[in-house]
């Protein structure tokens, strides 16, 4: 009797969109509407941040021919000063890069081997990310933090969206949401008080092994960087190399 009751309660509390048939989620499904609203609020919140620093601790996965899925660690740090200053450091055991943009120049450095490359560049952070990708094939993790809520950036077409439930992440009370679009499933844990993302899990559904990028985010909304973190001044051991334009139309 007790076991049946518990089972019934568990089934009743399961996220409503799961376990259903393969019907697409209705556009006016309340669960979907709520989740879409949450994403919009998150995007709006991100747009209000003019100066901030985010530290990301993440794992990423790569899949090999026979489906071996290997996990690697990486750490990312962003320092942002809108509209047109960005510093990104992306570090893993095998690759360490720092990207500097100060509104006039884009510089990419490889600190471990002391190479750097620089090109003139102007525009907002969004412009930078577009040009860096189009012209040089450069991109940075969690670009969505800079793209969501920007006018003119197409919103992903969601085939599914719903609230998963409450999650406590350290000191922060968050709500976990699931979203699905073609090729990607993602989950965001959004802080209840501040509408900031504290965790993001991005799953590549183009590959059957579904390699996933899982990131914990730590926010600092009052960064006090000494000096200019957005301009790279090479020390004498840094060697200048050219930044190669990306000529491959669909670089693998």
């Amino acid at each position: 009797m007790k076991r049946t009751l518990i089972a019934a309660l568990l089934m009743a509390s399961a996220a409503p969109a799961m376990g259903q048939s393969s019907q697409p989620q209705a556009q006016d499904d309340p669960a979907r509407v709520e989740a879409v609203t949450a994403l919009d609020e998150l995007s709006a919140r991100l747009r209000t941040l003019d100066q901030f620093e985010v530290n990301v601790n993440a794992t990423t996965e790569e899949v090999f021919t026979n489906g071996e899925k290997l996990q690697f660690l990486n750490q990312v740090r962003y320092v942002v000063d809108r509209p047109d200053k960005l510093y990104v450091s992306v570090r893993s055991d095998r690759k360490y890069r720092r990207i500097y943009y100060n509104g006039s120049n884009l510089t990419v450095t490889a600190p471990t081997t002391a190479y750097y490359a620089t090109v003139p560049m102007t525009g907002s952070i969004h412009d930078l990310l577009v040009k860096a990708n189009d012209q040089f094939g450069i991109d940075v993790p969690l670009e969505d933090l800079f793209l969501w809520g920007i006018d003119g950036v197409p919103k992903p077409v969601l085939t599914e969206a719903f609230l998963v439930g409450f999650a406590q992440i350290g000191d922060y009370a968050t709500d976990q949401y699931f979203y699905r679009t073609a090729g990607v499933d993602w989950q965001i844990w959004i802080g209840r008080d501040d509408k900031l993302p504290y965790r993001m899990v991005i799953t590549n559904t183009d590959d059957p092994a579904q390699p996933t990028y899982s990131a914990s985010l730590t926010w600092n909304l009052a960064p006090n960087e000494s000096g200019d973190p957005f301009t790279f001044t090479p020390s004498s051991d840094y060697k200048l190399v050219p930044l190669r334009p990306d000529q491959l139309a669909s670089a693998n």
Binding site: F64, F146, I202
Partner: peptide, 22 residues
């Protein structure tokens, strides 16, 4: 074995190009 795929590190991509994979 060769690397056949990897995690996407963003939902959206700023530009039109796929990243130059490792």
């Amino acid at each position: 074995a060769s690397n056949r795929g990897q995690a996407k590190q963003s939902v959206n991509r700023a530009g039109a190009k796929k990243p130059q994979n490792p």
